[in-house]
Design a binder for these strands. Sequence first.
DNA 1: GTATATGCAAACCGTTTGCATGGCT
DNA 2: AGCCATGCAAACGGTTTGCATATAC
Lengths: 140, 140
Amino acid sequence: MMDTQDKFCVTNWLYKVGLRPTQQRIELANLLVGNNSHQHITAERLFEKAKEAKISVSLATVYNTLHTFSEAGLLNKVIVDGARCYFDTRLDNHSHFYWEDTGQLTDTPGNFLEIKNLPEPPINSEITSVDIIIRLKEKN
Amino acid sequence: MMDTQDKFCVTNWLYKVGLRPTQQRIELANLLVGNNSHQHITAERLFEKAKEAKISVSLATVYNTLHTFSEAGLLNKVIVDGARCYFDTRLDNHSHFYWEDTGQLTDTPGNFLEIKNLPEPPINSEITSVDIIIRLKEKN
DNA sequence: GTATATGCAAACCGTTTGCATGGCT
DNA sequence: AGCCATGCAAACGGTTTGCATATAC
């Protein structure tokens, strides 16, 4: 029953942006936003979680789905590391801590960081995003 | 003669951080900082430039050298794109424009961008850098 | 002489792609 | 019925690695 509610919820979440609510999308969406908490996840990690949850989905579809979702504006892509690529379920503008030792990405606490004197975009260009990454390392 | 001066200069630049001034390092260093102007360059691009300049160096050494230089504090590594990795010859804290259409990385004009209310680093961690990337796309 | 840098080619790894199959409307 | 999503496996591309050779001190 809770399950049905969840599925209904993400189905709408998909419909709103014109995406077909296929089985894989619904189940991945539930893993991503089903519990109403925010997360920063990589494709590989989501694939693992899907396997743990006995969801039948291929790695290619996980990649496809994450990109489709982020192009549709349901997720934000965050690039902090040359290797991996993170997807953020929080959509508002906010900055991140990147833990270089563990590879974890978290939101910065509070939301009061602000930028003064943001430069104007050069002519014939527009700003798509302003990404702020605060890189952390363990203090010894 | 100008050439000798340049080589002497980068030799010192290397010595100061305890790096052996080998032929490849000297020549790559000249390509990087020899002309006193700042640049944002990828390993592949530097390798191309080296070939153009008839410098005998392997791609592996270009990668090695760029990492060695950045670990020694002679260059800054900038991550903006999941694929490539950029190295910045400017060492002070500054923000970047990233042109998504062309893959170019440039400094933002002026230097008056400032951050208010930077969050405190969590306990047992310290900030290694605060990276600000302003992503741009062409306006149609 | 010894430690370190270099070159080469092969391995690596996250990601993407092509194409045949399956599912949604 | 038709379009779109999925799965598989192979390709991709920037980067890294292992090891033999060459170079700096």
